[in-house]
Amino acid sequence: MRTLQNFVNGKKVSATSDKVQDLINPATGEVFAKAPVSNASDVDKAMQAAAGAFEVWKESTPGERQKAINKIADAIEARSEELIGIESENTGKPIAVTRAEEIGPMLDQIRFFAGAARNLEGKSAAEYFKGHTSFIRREPIGVCAQVTPWNYPMMMAVWKWAPAIAAGNTVVLKPSDTTPVSTLWMAELMQEFLPEGVINVVVGDRDTGRALIEHEIPQMVSITGSVRAGMEVASSAAKDLKKLHLELGGKAPVVIFDDANLQAACEWIAVAGYFNAGQDCTAATRVLVEASAYEDVVALLTEQAKNVIKVGMPDEDVLVGPVNNANQLARVQGFLD
């Protein structure tokens, strides 16, 4: 059984912590790998590497950054089937859905940020006082500490590192403790096209993430997670005035009036609710229906759940695979019990 390692300063590095945790394939319930639970010392090594790399990467031109990021996109695309298999094993996502709905948009996002590196905007220079010219200069921030969730591991990693690196920053990223595999794979692939230390991945639990956020080096913190986690991160970042980006969980209601096309509405509500096994911050979690249409909507959604939405194993032609982890399964079952 393989044991994962952190990716720091351009190479795989064993954590100094002896603590590990099992990674479980949601489709089989079997342990397929072990992952380190990194400590503050491991985080510090990654931060020092990123800080050193920043002195080089911040001087790269937008064109150089664009070229590197486009090469990363090309390399991921060439090995996309390998990445799909890794993501499915770690998350339980249906292979066909991941191929159709995630890989293409993810590659497009990487290439978008590669182009955006050459299109930074700013206010024009002007003379607001005689003899003085005022202007805004866009400069890289520094090291970015980033934390991603388990529901879209590879895509959320891209949403973090691509804009940060495109803007000339360096990254220390901590993926979810249950789904680190695709992020580590991606970092290793990226290293061919980036200076050592520009992308670093540290694997661990909440305490690892806390050490990441509280470390003195990063100038910006970005997290995708729960509202509770966002509040804790905001409080921690405020102590030394780190820049902050929060993408937090939502509660997405759907409103239906009786003059709507109920059949079409319920078809798309079912997709919105069940896509990615409902593990999505924009999943349709509540349906508010005008009283006169209530019974019809209940019947139509019941039909979708019973006979239309396909559920099964990741290698089957289905929309819904297993949920990601035991805690999530217990949470879903709690809604029914």
Score class of each variant (00 low, 15 high):
residue 142 G to W: 02
residue 142 G to V: 07
residue 142 G to T: 09
residue 142 G to N: 07
residue 143 V to H: 03
residue 143 V to S: 08
residue 143 V to T: 03
residue 143 V to L: 06
residue 144 C to T: 13
residue 145 A to L: 09
residue 145 A to H: 07
residue 145 A to Q: 09
residue 145 A to Y: 09
residue 145 A to M: 08
residue 145 A to N: 10
residue 146 Q to E: 15
residue 147 V to R: 01
residue 147 V to I: 15
residue 147 V to G: 03
residue 148 T to L: 07
residue 150 W to A: 13
residue 150 W to P: 06
residue 150 W to I: 07
residue 150 W to T: 08
residue 150 W to Y: 15
residue 151 N to K: 08
residue 151 N to V: 09
residue 152 Y to A: 13
residue 152 Y to K: 11
residue 153 P to D: 13
residue 153 P to L: 14
residue 154 M to F: 15
residue 154 M to C: 11
residue 154 M to N: 12
residue 155 M to R: 05
residue 155 M to S: 10
residue 156 M to D: 00
residue 156 M to S: 06
residue 156 M to C: 02
residue 156 M to P: 02
residue 157 A to W: 13
residue 157 A to R: 13
residue 158 V to H: 03
residue 158 V to Y: 03
residue 158 V to M: 07
residue 159 W to N: 10
residue 159 W to A: 06
residue 160 K to L: 13
residue 160 K to E: 09
residue 160 K to R: 14
residue 160 K to A: 11
residue 161 W to D: 02
residue 161 W to T: 02
residue 161 W to S: 02
residue 162 A to P: 12
residue 162 A to W: 12
residue 162 A to V: 08
residue 162 A to C: 10
residue 163 P to L: 14
residue 164 A to H: 13
residue 164 A to F: 14
residue 164 A to T: 13
residue 165 I to Y: 12
residue 165 I to P: 09
residue 165 I to G: 08
residue 165 I to C: 08
residue 165 I to D: 07
residue 165 I to R: 10
residue 166 A to W: 08
residue 166 A to K: 09
residue 167 A to F: 12
residue 167 A to R: 07
residue 167 A to S: 14
residue 167 A to K: 08
residue 167 A to E: 05
residue 167 A to Q: 08
residue 168 G to N: 03
residue 168 G to P: 07
residue 168 G to R: 04
residue 168 G to M: 06
residue 169 N to P: 12
residue 169 N to C: 15
residue 170 T to H: 03
residue 170 T to D: 04
residue 171 V to H: 05
residue 171 V to R: 05
residue 171 V to C: 12
residue 171 V to E: 10
residue 172 V to S: 06
residue 172 V to N: 04
residue 172 V to C: 05
residue 172 V to L: 06
residue 173 L to R: 09
residue 174 K to H: 01
residue 174 K to R: 06
residue 174 K to Y: 01
residue 174 K to V: 04
residue 174 K to L: 03
residue 175 P to N: 08
residue 175 P to Y: 09
residue 175 P to H: 10
residue 175 P to S: 09
residue 176 S to I: 10
residue 176 S to E: 11
residue 176 S to H: 15
residue 176 S to A: 15
residue 176 S to L: 11
residue 177 D to C: 11
residue 177 D to W: 09
residue 177 D to S: 14
residue 177 D to A: 15
residue 178 T to G: 02
residue 179 T to I: 06
residue 179 T to N: 05
residue 179 T to S: 12
residue 179 T to A: 12
residue 180 P to Q: 01
residue 180 P to H: 02
residue 180 P to M: 02
residue 181 V to A: 00
residue 182 S to T: 15
residue 183 T to N: 00
residue 183 T to C: 05
residue 183 T to F: 04
residue 184 L to A: 11
residue 184 L to I: 15
residue 185 W to T: 00
residue 186 M to Q: 05
residue 186 M to K: 04
residue 187 A to V: 01
residue 187 A to M: 00
residue 187 A to W: 00
residue 187 A to E: 00
residue 188 E to V: 01
residue 188 E to Y: 00
residue 188 E to I: 01
residue 188 E to A: 03
residue 188 E to P: 01
residue 190 M to E: 07
residue 191 Q to T: 04
residue 191 Q to G: 03
